[in-house]
Simulated scan of single mutants.
Amino acid sequence: MILTAAKLNRFLLFKLPSAFLCGVRVKQIVFDQCIVSVKHRWINQNPFNSMYFAVQAMAAELTTGALVMFHIQKSNRNIAMLVANNKSSFTKKATGRITFECQNKNQIERAIQNTIATGEGQTFWLKSIGTNEKGERVSEMDFEWTIKLKS
């Protein structure tokens, strides 16, 4: 199965329904890019009339996790993945449509190659940047992923 935006959105519906109900949607996934967007609405707002931070975190994590899944699938190996840590910063109220894009993409393939070659688990950080419709940065989130070969 090749990962596509439509397949990932279907995955959200059945495996992560809270993200789906909040409006998180994959717009594009290719070898080195995953774009996810979510629109500020009543269901995903905080008391300050902007998008709740956890909704932003779901969208941001999805940009990084989908790329990790994409590269694991491409490797044809049985590899487990898990978020170990995350950190975030918020610089502007998130209103309107917020688009997240993963940065640091080349680290994924290197980590997968290292875990296959050595049999040892690997960790790496991926960054996702959230911007509003004006192109202004609203949040920046970093996720530390761990991967290891399944036995």
Rank of each mutant, 00 (worst) to 15 (best):
L62S: 10
N44A: 13
N78L: 10
A54T: 10
L62K: 11
K148H: 11
E61I: 07
M141R: 12
N132G: 02
S89G: 14
L126M: 15
I2S: 10
F11Y: 14
I72G: 07
T63F: 12
L82S: 03
F124A: 03
A57C: 09
K105Q: 12
S50I: 02
N114Q: 14
W125K: 07
T123V: 14
C22D: 03
I147L: 06
L62C: 12
W145V: 04
L13S: 08
N114D: 13
A60E: 00
E109I: 12
E61A: 10
C102R: 13
F100K: 02
A57L: 08
M69L: 11
I129G: 04
V38K: 12
K92M: 03
C22M: 13
C22S: 10
G23W: 08
K148G: 02
D32Q: 15
L3E: 03
N78M: 06
Q122S: 14
S139Y: 00
I147R: 01
R110G: 07
T95K: 07
S50K: 00
N9E: 12
I129H: 01
T99M: 07
M141V: 04
E133C: 05
L149F: 00
M69I: 02
A6W: 09
T131D: 00
L8V: 13
F100C: 13
G23Q: 10
E120N: 11
C102T: 15
T115L: 03
S18K: 10
S139P: 00
R97K: 15
N132K: 05
N132V: 01
A57D: 12
K127L: 09
F70S: 07
W42Y: 14
E120F: 04
L21V: 14
M69Y: 07
M1Y: 04
I129W: 01
I112Q: 05
T64A: 15
T115V: 09
N132R: 02
M58A: 13
T64L: 05
I43Y: 13
A117S: 13
N76E: 13
K7H: 02
M1W: 08
M51P: 01
S37A: 12
A54L: 10
C102G: 09
E136L: 00
S89Y: 01
A60N: 08
V38I: 14
Q56P: 03
C22N: 06
L12R: 04
E140F: 02
L21P: 02
G119I: 00
G121P: 03
A94L: 09
A117W: 00
Y52Q: 04
A54D: 06
M81I: 08
F70P: 05
W42F: 15
V138M: 05
M81G: 06
I116R: 04
E140A: 11
T99L: 06
N76A: 10
K74S: 12
